[in-house]
Design a protein around this nucleic acid. Structure first.
Length: 592
RNA sequence: CGGGGUGUAGCGCAGAGGGUAGCGCGCCGCGUUUGGGACGCGGAGGUCGGCGGUUCAAGUCCGCCCACCCCGACCA
């Protein structure tokens, strides 16, 4: 490709609405252009990189038996109604009507489409196991798209779906994906870790997320450097230290005017926050006699800890959870700021499992301006549910080995999920087993977003001048800077550059040839910005020095290579760069 | 959805106090120049986010709306 013909242009200045590195660089280098919030055009350079990433995914998923297909983005509402997600999901799903007034949905993922196909295509155990996948557009009307390609509304995802007779089969395909995903990220040269993650409402039994660790990430992860435990904060467990044993003291009511926060209360009473109980009110949507009802949940955690909403959701099997409004709290007879489970009837009280081991806590008295001291679980009140519902924090002790957990931020670049039979049962995806019995297909789903992956790679590999793309992802392998000038020397250099361009292409090398009538500075800067791994400079000076200047984007050193050796040298370096990446592809330990 | 911010040429920005819009980069033409974002001369390009109001007169003042960005809520 000639730079003089390339459709996109580079920008000297960053667009004012870009803040994070990958967004700035992808915009400046002409890879992407924004159409609306969370909606981007992939320009030719980005498209080439994305295609490379997608081909790596194809390779790896094909290698574990995947069959590529393509499922529609616009889908009839019926299949979403069948699984209930038409009603459950809310405004995140794109909805429209076709010309006949029928409800249609824009796919946010493809479990429904898969289930529909499976229902019709799979009849016998003989057809299982099978693995299907596609690389397709998704629409999720995220309330807050941000950070360029990191969090968008329209995106392309490689999603695969495993179909098995039983859970053992699912285990096998899940493990195959577990490794294949590492291989995909490693081939893209992106360092990732896997963390255990929430399985949510889908009734799955296991899920992992692949995380690229970076401060700009949106998820918080807890890692144990000693034993290797790693989990999303949503589900991370840790050792809780109960305080020293104490005799239960008599319950007492004390005046605590204006002490509505834990910090204020603890200071006023002169006790540590760990000697207080914190009340958090949430409204949960739960299933009661097959009916969805919204209930107030009174969650109690020790004052020095934070409620983890995911854990609470799971503990009470809620479909949804949201903070309660003051009116809803008052409605059950609780007094915000001084709330107490003591003497409240008929509400769902959930206490953290550390509370029963924490004697003599200070808690609200359900009376404006008063708290109880020496509140003891069991004696003074009881809960409907006792469960781990607090969030792990940096420095907490690892449940497995006791070492200190480290909290880091990460971007989720992929996830794998044991769906089980939730969809199969909802939709009726069954097969006949050897014994003639109808059984639900056991499913798994596995996804990687290609744009977010590209953005993460750019986040990882850049310097003050621009991107430094890995050879496997770069839109081109070589960037030729032609330095011309008038006169005979200049014409000679241009001719040499043209010849080099032709020779490299004939040798199968992907070349971006900067043949523009621009000053050398512009070309060097654009070469750095776009981040092509190998830069070749041909000009009167390099020819005088004996050939072509050869430079890796990721190194400072330059050397002159004679014209007749350049092609061989380029091919050799490409092979070396590929080999360096290949070394990163290693088996990763899988933990149950 | 709550809080904050920004909308003026393709991009980045300036336009106190109302008087009909400017700078840099980029773009077009001609010429010079060619190893780290060159130079000269000549050009093109803007319903100032939208609608309404105040006024003789609105980019500027007032009201409503929209879009985009950031923080939070949210994120199968």
């Amino acid at each position: 490709m000639r730079m003089s013909k390339l459709f996109s242009q580079t920008l000297r200045e960053s667009p004012s609405d870009a803040e994070i590195t990958s967004h700035i660089l992808l915009e400046r280098a002409g890879f992407i252009r924004q159409l609306a919030a969370g909606i981007y055009t992939a320009m030719p350079l980005a498209k080439r990189s994305l295609t490379k990433i997608e081909n790596i995914m194809r390779d790896e998923i094909n290698a574990i038996g995947g069959q590529e297909m393509s499922m529609p983005v616009v889908q009839p509402a019926e299949i979403w109604k069948r699984t209930g997600r038409w009603y459950k999901v809310g405004p995140e799903m794109g909805r429209l009507k076709d010309r006949n007034g029928r409800d249609m949905a824009l796919a946010m993922t493809h479990e429904e489409a898969v289930s529909d196909i499976v229902k019709n295509e799979i009849h016998s155990y003989r057809q299982l196991p099978v693995l299907i996948y596609h690389i397709q557009t998704k629409w999720r009307d995220d309330p807050r798209p941000r950070a360029g390609l990191i969090r968008v509304r329209e995106f392309t995802m490689k999603d695969s779906y495993s179909l098995d007779r039983d859970w053992e089969g699912l285990d096998e395909q899940y493990r195959a994906h577990y490794q294949a995903y590492f291989d995909i990220f490693h081939r893209c040269d992106l360092p990732v870790i896997s963390v255990k993650s929430d399985v949510g409402m889908m009734g799955g039994t296991m899920a992992h997320e692949y995380m690229y660790i970076t401060p700009s990430g949106e998820d918080t992860l807890l890692l144990c450097d000693k034993c290797g435990y790693s989990a999303n904060r949503q589900i991370a467990v840790f050792q809780k230290e109960s305080g020293p044993e104490e005799e239960a003291l008599p319950l007492d009511k004390v005046a605590t005017p204006e002490m509505k926060t834990i910090a204020a209360l603890s200071e006023f009473l002169g006790v540590p926050e760990s000697k207080t109980a914190k009340a958090v009110f949430m409204m949960a949507t739960v299933l009661e006699d097959e009916e969805e009802v919204e209930k107030l949940v009174f969650a109690i955690v020790r004052g020095d800890m934070d409620l983890n909403e995911t854990k609470l959701t799971n503990a009470i099997k809620a479909k949804e959870l949201r903070p309660a409004e003051e009116a809803e709290i008052v409605a059950v007879g609780a007094v915000p700021g001084y709330a107490s489970p003591i003497g409240l009837d008929g509400i769902l009280v959930v206490v953290d499992d550390l509370i029963p081991q924490s004697p003599n806590l200070a808690a609200g008295a359900n009376e404006e301006g008063y708290h109880y001291i020496n509140v003891n679980y069991g004696r003074d009140y009881k809960a409907s549910v006792v469960a781990d519902i607090v969030a792990a924090r940096d420095g907490d002790a690892c449940l497995g080995c006791g070492a200190s957990l480290r909290a880091v931020r990460g971007i989720e670049v992929g996830n794998i999920f044991k769906l089980g039979t939730w969809y199969s049962e909802a939709v009726g995806c069954t097969y006949q087993d050897e014994d003639g019995e109808e059984k639900p297909v056991v499913m798994g789903s596995y996804g990687i977003g290609s744009g977010r992956l590209l953005a993460s790679i750019v986040e990882e590999y850049n310097d003050e001048y621009g991107m430094i793309l890995p050879i496997s992802v770069a839109p081109y392998q070589v960037y030729i800077v032609a330095i011309a000038g008038k006169g005979e020397k200049g014409a000679e250099a241009m001719a040499a550059a043209e010849q080099l361009y032709t020779d490299l292409q004939e040798a199968g090398v992907e070349v971006l040839f900067d043949d523009r009538d621009e000053s050398p500075g512009v070309k060097f800067n654009d070469a750095d910005l776009i981040g092509i791994p190998i830069r070749l400079t041909v000009g009167p000076r390099s020819l005088k020095d004996g050939g072509v200047e050869f430079k890796r984007r990721d190194q400072k050193e330059r050397e002159i290579v004679p014209l007749e050796e350049v092609v061989a040298k380029v091919k050799e370096l490409i092979a070396t760069l590929k080999a360096e990446i290949a070394e990163r592809i290693v088996p990763m330990p899988f933990e149950e």
